[in-house]
Design a protein around this nucleic acid. Structure first.
Length: 215
DNA sequence: AAGCGGATTGTCT
DNA sequence: GACAATCCGCTTG
């Protein structure tokens, strides 16, 4: 049985490059999440690059902590964080080890295991909503802090809850970029959000809005 | 289509 | 103690 060309696993060298090269190159790739009930597959349509300690928008900006330790480790591993008291978001560590850069997975199209994803995302009204937004994406794929540090390039596929496949990358002219969502201050200037033009699963852009204080 | 307020807790100052 | 790489439901246009 010959593997279809678009289902070849990406190797670690793919992630061992500068994060601004990896981020747009991830579009159209297929992330496989292996759950106890079966696989869920996601075709990536929207990502954001976070460039480590030099990037004010990055969780690594103030150095290594227990929470962000995985970002400082080898590329091709998953960094999962918990935010807003409710949600998880998922990143892939990039660049030479120690650069602490990562790509936030913001949105994608569920291409297999939609029944499993729908169970995880009861509030979604259409299938294009299932992974439209980073917290929705993590919810659909049943990702939480327990999976922090998982390898997406395992030598033995059975040893990890994730794998990533080549997929069908879009033509360059269909990839666009702009400011990152929810990032304010100095970090807002960088156009490091990348998405596939006109894809229905891409999340709507929301500019950074400081929250009001409770009275 | 766009704007709002509330939810809810880990993490860092 | 402040706030977060967000989402949802409801309102207005």
């Amino acid at each position: 049985m010959i593997a279809a060309p678009d289902r070849t696993p990406l190797d670690r060298a793919f992630f061992d490059r500068p994060v601004l090269d990896v981020a747009p190159d991830l579009l159209g790739r297929v992330l496989v999440r292996k759950t106890a009930h079966g696989p869920i597959e996601l075709r990536l349509t929207e990502v954001e690059a976070y460039a480590g300690p030099v990037d004010p928008g990055s969780h690594a900006y103030r150095g290594r902590t227990d929470r962000n330790a995985v970002m400082f480790g080898p590329p091709g591993h998953v960094y999962v964080y918990f935010t807003y008291g409710m949600w998880h978001c998922m990143n892939l560590v990039c660049g030479p080890e120690g650069t602490a850069s990562a790509v936030l997975l913001r949105a994608g199209e569920i291409t297999a295991g939609a029944d499993l994803a729908r169970k995880r995302r009861q509030t979604s009204r259409r299938d294009t909503d299932l992974a439209q937004g980073p917290a929705r994406l993590a919810t659909a794929l049943d990702v939480d802090r327990a999976l922090d540090g998982s390898d997406v390039c395992p030598s033995d596929p059975d040893s990890s809850p994730f794998q990533i496949l080549t997929g069908a990358p879009p033509a360059l002219h269909t990839v666009r970029n702009g400011p990152r969502t929810g990032v304010g201050g100095e970090g807002a200037a960088h156009p490091w959000r990348f998405w596939i033009t006109a894809d229905p699963t891409v999340s709507p852009y929301r500019p950074h809005a400081p929250r009001k204080r409770r009275s």
